[in-house]
Design a binder for these strands. Structure first.
Lengths: 208, 208
DNA sequence: ATCAGATGGTTGACACTGTCTACTTTTTGT
DNA sequence: ACAAAAAGTAGACAGTGTCAACCATCTGAT
């Protein structure tokens, strides 16, 4: 009486979908392959035919998240204006984090499975980072500031850190204890982008 | 043959110390009361005399971390110059995160035990936040900008987000996959503080 | 058409975890 | 001195990941 439901590769996708539901409602630490099996009406070993371990299903979820994240970052307009492109990518970054808080937290907020053992996940992660890094590099090139290369890399990291900070803020459980008004955290992204933009304009003044 | 080692309240502290070691080497998800017991040469139930559950020992660790964090934030100089004080507090924030990455990650990077069920932890967290918030409020007052109150709160959140982003950067496991040069991440804090400072100076220009 | 092998299921077992209950020993306040 | 509280012990149970062995179905080559 094998394969009572969800046969073939469908089970693989069904496992991922169910895992996302579990993580969303109960947190990543509550994710268990046995619970997935139970919900799918399947034996507790069935998922192991598709994922070598609990970490492997998590790594696959993270990989898909990085791919979707990269697609969002890369989906914006590619005008000739590096300043505008960077701004658009920053918006895209925050938009993804807002629309997919679960995936964002998995990518940046929880300890990942050992990247060396999950090369696909690592590859997707690097691709997403490369998009952000290239965009910021283009800004540095276009404004033609004669800054040391190290300074440019530091600015790339600075922008990324600021975006990450703003994206993390609503998700940091510590923030939940503060009882801030609802709208404030949403207004933070626009406000912070302006502040960060003024810092960047000071370092890379728009060309006349 | 009760109490073969570490009797009395000593066991409580020994549990916390051992828990920190385990979290440091194996990650927070590997923390188990039984492993603590084993290492301390004590029965698997002994810790339950001091902590009601696994979450309670974690909440106590987080509470101590918030207290130490607040002490670091509050330990800086209290000059009359709000701008200098804020800068010092920012440095203190990053210094703590660098010196105690484990505790910082526990406070801001991992899902906390339900704060409502651990009021001591929540109280310490609020105290630490209040210090940062007050300092930023003083800056707004001192420079006397006629900004809407909401704007000031947003700037407080912006500064906090930026600090958190820079502090998180070296800890985000995703960063580990990028293979950045060693010194860069350390230089990021100073560089980012300058950039953030220029943004804040633009919004709250130093009084003549 | 058949039949070997891969694929995707199954059950069973083991060691590990948190936590409940019940028991014993020690410390302590009056 | 002694009863009560505090701090330890052991045992049991359900939950978990994962290893091993087994069974059913699909598929491709002969």
């Amino acid at each position: 009486m094998a394969r009572p439901k969800a046969a073939g590769r469908d089970l693989r996708e069904a496992c991922i979908a169910e895992a996302l539901k579990i993580i969303e409602t109960d947190g990543v630490e509550q994710l268990s392959l046995r619970e997935i099996s139970r919900r799918l009406g399947v034996s507790h070993q069935a998922p192991y035919k598709h994922f070598a371990s609990r970490d492997h299903i998590l790594a696959e979820i993270v990989r898909q998240a990085f791919d979707a994240f990269a697609a969002e970052l890369d989906g914006g307009p590619h005008t000739g204006d590096a300043r505008a492109d960077m701004s658009a990518m920053g918006e895209a970054y925050l938009r993804y984090a807002r629309a997919h808080p679960l995936q964002y937290r998995l990518m940046f907020g929880t300890p990942l499975p050992n990247p060396a053992e999950h090369p696909d996940m690592m590859h997707s992660a690097r691709h997403a980072f490369a998009l952000l890094h290239d965009c910021i590099g283009a800004l540095a090139r276009q404004t033609g500031q004669s800054l040391a290369d190290e300074t440019r890399v530091l600015d790339a990291l600075y922008v990324w850190a600021t975006l990450h900070g703003m994206a993390s803020m609503p998700q940091t459980s510590a923030v939940g204890t503060l009882g801030l008004p609802e709208g404030l955290l949403q207004a933070l992204t626009g406000h912070g982008m302006q502040r960060m933009g003024s810092a960047m304009d000071a370092a890379y003044p728009p060309q006349e």
